[in-house]
Design a protein around this nucleic acid. Structure first.
Length: 664
DNA sequence: GGGTTAAAGGTGG
DNA sequence: TTCCACCACCTTTAACCC
């Protein structure tokens, strides 16, 4: 079975041959598949679509990357190469010293897990081609369906074309979790600290079990697989046994389904095995990396990675090159890692592409709600929010903001997400996602009774009665969602950015805002347009102590208190906010507090400022400085820059970052 | 120079 | 007739702050 990849030949009469789909890659159960037919069908069903165009765009990008790498390769002198070879030789000595052949690792992978579970609960599906998922996307397919070229991550409508009799079964996560738990009970008997990769796979360190029971890794694997089969009522799995996790994973794929493969723990066996292994078999090397290594450096097998080590160290970052080299030597992790906790939590939804802003905001609200719900369920609070958008043309954008306060409330999430989204409009969108990261570790690691911390944060988030340092800086960050990035880009796009330009932005921003937003906009506009003038006004303002309704901010004793003159006008800057605008008023007073801190920071007495205060002040400054002082910017943006000033989005620029991502 | 943040991309299940 | 997910992790690059 020669992988005679004709994909790089450009035969006009067979255009599908150059369409690089992942669906023709070798996968367990797909050996007899007519690859060319699959590729043709996928091509026919895809061509011309927005998705297809985006794929072509990405393809072109990759080719550029490869060209660039070839160029750099050609420029390497022989003395460069011999120097890099010395680096390689040294690294080989170093990593060889860490080689540990004393452990026995087992990788278990359930066979077509979701599909197998569905068949177990509905035996009439047995022997029929079936896929779990829907017309838009398939999660997994059984082996009968795979014979037709149907596979995981394939759109359902293409799968149906490949296999008209395909039966679709909707995804049922609770069911899979139940069966996954059954398998994990078995795993625990062999390694209580096993590493669960996902619902359907796990790594087990079976060194001790083998020793205690005087059994080989292969015998333990046999026993475990049979145990899984009986405990689940008929599910099969495959296993790989080797000296480290990387190799074990490769091995579990070799005799799939319902099989196993053992790689002996001695160096020469490992080296023989790895040297001819295609690089794509390695976890972490996907379509793009494979192409780059193959087409730019002619690295096809793991063994090539060692042979061409000097090129790898010359062209890739140290960490990438280190990874490639260790792969080439058959090295992998052998330790049992510390308990790993999640780093982020997210929610995203795809829908029919739309530019209708009302609809988009309501989708955003739904997603914020879902995310908040998930976070509360897991008792998580986080402070970095990332908005992900997929445009109608499948371009992915992400925009992030870090808050000064941990939160999980849907109100907080939505508030900041709305600002991020607003800056992107107008645009036609087919997917919105929200992700929260940078968790509050203390809250997470506290005992369950401490769940109240989260509750406290939620409550605090939804009704912001307290004013503390954090709140004020949080407010500041949120306030600057519009102002900050924008000021940043505007200020370095041209130091004498004209008033007109600013006005354009503001005017644009003013379209379709609710009265509530209108007030905020006004406030932001003051910030944007008046900058220092605000401070001047601040000075000139007179406090009307006789005002009926007053709200004094007493955090800093020497601060002139903010008073709502006549119950609605700020004595410091004159902005008008009715009493019912509780949150806006809170934000507004926070804003003045931030201003106050900023003044103090830049004043002569700053050296006396207590650390805590100074820290929060400088955090604020991080955002605020943009308003008063242009950020430093290199005189001419080199081509390698990835930064896309936010204002380019306001000018409806179609240009994406295509041309800048090549540099590596 | 190291740490942080933002944006983008790759990978795998 | 149309139709290409959702989630989490990691790395890289750039800009900026301390």
């Amino acid at each position: 079975m020669d992988e005679g990849e004709s994909s790089s030949t450009n035969n006009p009469s067979r255009p599908w041959e150059s369409y690089n789909t992942v669906f023709t890659n070798a996968k367990a159960g797909m050996e007899g598949v007519d690859k060319e037919k699959v590729q043709r069908v996928v091509y026919e069903m895809s061509k011309g679509s927005k998705y297809f165009q985006n794929e072509e765009r990405k393809e072109a990008l990759m080719k550029q990357k490869i060209e660039h790498m070839r160029d750099r390769c050609a420029k390497l002198s022989s003395s460069d190469l011999s120097n890099y070879q010395k680096v390689v030789d040294r690294r080989i000595l170093e990593v060889e010293a860490t080689r540990d052949l004393s452990r026995v690792w087992l990788h278990v992978d359930m066979d077509a897990f979701y599909a197998a579970v569905e068949t177990l609960s509905n035996p009439s599906l047995k022997g029929k081609p079936m896929a779990v998922g829907g017309l838009s996307m398939i999660s997994t397919a059984n082996y009968e369906a795979r014979k037709f070229g149907v596979r995981a991550a394939m759109p359902g409508f293409i799968a149906r074309k490949l296999c008209p009799d395909l039966i679709f079964v909707p995804v049922d996560f609770p069911k899979y979790t139940h069966y996954s738990d059954l398998t994990r009970k078995v795993f625990k008997n062999y390694d209580p600290n096993f590493i669960a990769g996902s619902l359907d796979e796990a790594y087990l360190d079976i060194t001790e079990v083998c020793r205690e029971r005087g059994l080989s890794g292969g015998e333990i694997a046999e026993e475990l697989r049979s145990s899984v089969h009986s405990e689940t009522g008929g599910l099969t799995c495959s296993a790989g046994v080797a000296a480290n996790r990387l190799l074990a994973k490769v091995c579990s794929d070799i005799n799939k389904p319902n099989g196993q493969f053992v790689l002996q723990n001695d160096r020469s066996t490992v080296m023989t095995f790895i040297s001819s292994l295609p690089i794509r078999k390695i976890g972490g090397i996907g379509k793009v990396t494979e192409h780059i290594l193959k087409d730019a450096l002619e690295i096809k097998t793991c063994g090539d990675m060692v042979l061409k080590g000097s090129l790898l160290y010359a062209l890739f970052t140290q960490s990438s090159a280190d990874f490639f080299l260790s792969v080439g030597l058959g090295l992998g992790k052998t330790d049992t890692p510390e308990v790993r906790s999640r780093k982020s939590i997210s929610s995203e939804r795809t829908f029919a592409a739309t530019g209708d802003e009302k609809l988009l905001y309501s989708k955003l609200a739904e997603i914020a709600e879902m995310l908040s719900h998930d976070m509360q369920k897991e008792r998580l609070a986080a402070r970095t929010l990332t908005l992900k958008l997929k445009t109608a043309s499948f371009e992915i954008r992400s925009r992030a903001v870090s808050l000064q306060r941990y939160t999980c409330s849907s109100e907080d999430i939505l508030k900041h997400a709305t600002k991020l989204l607003k800056a992107e409009l107008p645009v036609s969108i087919r997917l919105i996602g929200l992700r929260m990261s940078q968790f509050n570790e203390e809250a997470r690691h506290s005992d369950p009774s401490q769940g109240t911390i989260t509750k406290f944060i939620v409550q605090k988030g939804s009704s912001r009665k307290n004013l503390d340092d954090n709140d004020s800086s949080d407010l500041d960050a949120s306030k600057n969602c519009l102002g900050n990035d924008e000021m940043l880009s505007l200020s370095y796009a041209s130091h004498e950015t004209s008033y007109d330009q600013l006005k354009d932005v503001v005017e644009y921003e003013e379209q379709s805002v609710t009265p509530n937003q209108e007030c905020k906009k006004k406030e932001e506009r003051i910030q944007v347009l008046e900058g220092d003038a605000l401070l001047r006004k601040h000075k000139d303002c007179k406090a009307d102590s006789s005002a009926e309704k007053t709200e004094a901010v007493s955090v800093l004793p020497q601060m002139e208190p903010l008073v709502w003159v006549d119950g609605y006008r700020c004595n410091l800057c004159g902005i008008e906010l009715p009493p019912s605008f509780v949150e806006e008023r809170q934000e507004h007073s926070d804003f003045h507090l931030a201003q106050r801190l900023q003044n103090e920071e830049s004043g002569p007495s700053s050296s006396n400022t207590p650390t805590s205060k100074r820290r929060s002040a400088s955090q604020i400054l991080g955002k605020e400085k943009a308003n008063s002082k242009p950020k430093k910017q290199k005189p001419n943006q080199k081509d390698g820059s990835k930064h896309i000033p936010i204002h380019t989005f306001f000018t409806k620029s179609n240009q994406n970052s295509n041309d800048e991502t090549q540099k590596k």
